[in-house]
Design a protein around this nucleic acid. Structure first.
Length: 675
DNA sequence: CGGTTAGGGGTTTTT
DNA sequence: CCCCTAACCG
């Protein structure tokens, strides 16, 4: 049984009486085992599995715990446990209530927000202060939603009183954003939680116990969701030294005030670290000691065996560093899946990846940026999003911007014309227009008579379009109408299709997609002198179809289009691509462990990231990030830095954490001066 | 004059 | 790779 493997302190926590329990679990102290043990204990005590809710920070973590429970309990019991991230669980409940939820990617929502922001004139305010940019305001608004239950105005002016002259403009932008978001049918991550709270308040839940993993990174919005559910019992597991999501409103006070918020709360501490060697732990502790203590904490070393001292790797130049690390990894006897390169900023990843590739070492990165940000994948997502939500004008714009000579403005007119043809319905306007007059436009251009032009399009397209009123749109040109008819042809072939994978297969095989692949691969194969290398182009196009294949594979697990799309937004960047050495940001490394770890780019400015600190972050948080990074290592830890970036011509000073870790002596600090 | 497109500069972290 | 700016096109 899962409980047999626990040590005394873990067992005591796992068997805690029902009530409000906080488990302070330092890095590597068997947090996961304790949670699995706790659920084991609950199930063995006769608690119905569907009255257990396990909230984790990533869906992967939830999956791992569920998988471990399946070793001890029948699958049909374990599958009844509610488990997942706050967002995933909330989404599941709303979906069960038939709520109409169509998630939209944060970047898209930012673009929408910005477009509304730009309608307002901020220069009219009588002040020397310059207004926040649209994107900064968006981030603040999102932070507010996660961090505060007050009115935006109150929360905002507390921190930025000098922006008082803009407050009404800011509020108007936010109002406009909220209403436009609703009219397009979009739901943000934050909306998901807000709506879940509403749902839980109107239809109370009856959980016996809620377990919250990574409790130090829950924010006010999330903790108010937990409170709204009002469970009999709470089991929160966290470590304040690993709180690294302040930018998302993570509220360290959720931990520090736990015993005062919940009367009669019990606090347990897991202090024996089984993950790392004594010297890695003592390094981590030397650094984190510089942060204020909330609860006393003394780590005991539980690991036995050889103990290699952490090593400092210092190089002159950035790429020399990446190259040396790649070389060190190549000569390592550790399997590459057990090796990680960890960095503060994603910008470090490209250099490391390039050097590893040069030496033929496979590596994997978190899928998010590389996969879903790829334009060929975005196109597929946009195409499907518009089918799932015909009000999604943003998706339409992205699709039609691939049409030659079509930009956002023209695409928007086309969309509006189509909605007009369908008397309010985009799809009707596309498939079976009931109005054929062209709505009035802002354009003064009138290029009539494009139809009947002999060089126009192949005959079948012509007949496709001949019956469609969009061809008479003043912005219609032979090129963009050819694009349109490819689009229409594909849409018609998907008219009755409901299965996501079948849809994806048809899209990828379509003429429209091949047009896009051609555009993208041509652009990618174009050298600086403008020439297109045909073998490069073939390669680029192969890579695109490879991604499309992966996308198809992902879609095959879903029966409903909307569910597939939402799942891609909700858990999309949790999937890792490929096999090999792990390239991770510190944030992404949370909860993971590796035999050999390289923490790279340990220079002032990069790690700690001083740019962020000037924007409200603080050194304590950066120090926690460092702590998280080094405590991922089980046996070998390398701390690495470079003193110069030849591309940007920047000199670097070593990170203050290298001094705090006593990998560098204080005197050297004075010697390393800025030039 | 509005819109498109090409080219140069810059990049935080996540659900 | 994405965003912004400036030149270009109709």
């Amino acid at each position: 049984m899962a409980l047999n493997g626990l040590n005394a302190e873990q067992l005591q926590a796992a068997l805690a009486p029902i009530g409000h329990n906080l488990i302070i679990a330092s890095a590597g102290t068997g947090k996961t085992s304790t949670i699995v043990g706790r659920i084991t204990h609950l199930l063995r005590s006769g608690v119905e599995p569907n009255r257990i809710l396990l909230l984790t920070f990533t869906n992967k973590a939830a999956g791992e715990m569920i998988a471990r429970l399946e070793r001890y309990f029948p699958k049909d019991v374990v599958s009844k446990i509610e488990a997942g991230t706050f967002h995933a669980v909330g989404y599941r409940w709303l979906k069960a209530k038939n709520a109409n939820v169509i998630l939209k990617q944060p970047n898209e929502l930012k673009t929408l927000f910005k477009s509304i922001y730009e309608k307002y004139n901020f220069s009219s305010a009588n002040t020397d202060v310059s207004p926040f940019s649209a994107l900064y305001l968006y981030d603040l608004y999102s932070l507010y939603q996660n961090a505060s239950l007050e009115l935006f105005e109150d929360w905002f002016l507390e921190s930025y009183p000098d922006h008082q002259p803009f407050i009404n403009l800011y509020l108007a932008v936010i109002d406009g954003f909220e209403s436009e978001k609703i009219s397009y049918g979009f739901v943000s991550f934050n909306d998901l939680l807000l709506r879940t709270i509403d749902e839980v308040k109107t239809n109370p839940m009856d959980f016996y116990e809620i377990l919250v993993d990574e409790y130090q990174d829950t924010n006010t919005l999330q903790s108010s969701l937990v409170d709204a559910m009002n469970p009999n019992s709470l089991f929160c597991v966290g470590d304040y030294d690993q709180s690294i999501y302040a930018f998302n409103g993570a509220n360290i006070e959720n931990i520090s005030t736990f015993s005062t918020r919940y009367k009669g709360a019990s606090v347990f501490t897991l202090a024996t670290n089984y993950r790392s060697t004594a010297s890695i732990l003592s390094l981590a502790n030397r650094v984190i000691e510089h942060n204020p203590r909330i609860y006393p904490k003394q780590l005991k070393v539980g690991k036995e065996g050889k103990d290699l001292s952490p090593r400092l790797l210092a190089y002159h130049e950035l790429f020399e560093q990446y190259h040396a690390i790649a070389h060190s990894i190549k000569t390592s006897h550790i399997p590459s899946n057990d090796i990680a390169v960890i960095f503060r900023n994603n910008s470090s990843a490209d250099g490391v990846e390039a050097m590893l590739r040069e030496l033929g070492i496979p590596c994997k990165r978190k899928g998010g940026s590389s996969f879903f940000d790829a334009r060929e994948v975005k196109f597929l997502l946009d195409f499907l999003s518009l089918i799932a939500n015909q009000k999604d004008i943003m998706a339409f714009l992205h699709i039609f911007e691939y049409g030659r000579g079509v930009g956002a403005a023209t695409a928007k007119e086309f969309y509006q014309a189509l909605v007009h043809f369908g008397d309010g319905s985009f799809k009707r306007g596309l498939y079976a227009p009931i109005k054929t007059d062209i709505p009035k436009t802002t354009s003064h251009l009138t290029q009539a008579g494009l139809f009947g032009d002999e060089e126009l399009t192949p005959t079948n397209q012509k007949s496709l379009l001949a019956s469609h009123p969009i061809g008479r749109h003043p912005k219609a040109t032979p090129e963009n109408m050819e694009f349109f008819s490819s689009y229409l042809e594909l849409m018609k072939s998907l008219y009755d299709e409901k299965n996501p994978a079948k849809m994806v297969r048809k899209i990828v095989a379509s003429k429209l997609y091949s047009t896009i692949v051609d555009q993208l691969s041509t652009a990618r194969a174009r050298a600086k002198n403008g020439e297109v290398d045909s073998s490069n182009k073939t390669q680029a196009s192969e890579r695109i179809y490879q991604k499309a294949k992966l996308f198809l594979e992902l879609s095959s697990h879903y029966k409903e289009l909307i569910r597939f799309l939402n799942a891609m937004i909700l858990g999309g960047n949790e999937l890792t691509q490929g096999d090999g050495v792990n390239l991770l940001t510190v944030h992404a490394s949370k909860g993971l462990e590796f035999t050999e770890v390289y923490v790279v780019d340990l220079m002032e400015g990069r790690f700690p990231n001083t740019k962020l600190m000037s924007r409200g972050g603080d050194l304590d948080e950066e120090r926690r990030l460092f702590y998280v990074a080094v405590t991922r290592a089980k046996e070998k830890l390398y701390l690495s830095m470079a003193s110069y970036d030849k591309n940007k011509k920047i000199d670097f000073k070593p990170s203050c954490f290298l001094y705090e870790a006593r990998m560098l002596k204080g005197e050297e600090m004075k010697e390393t001066k800025e030039k």
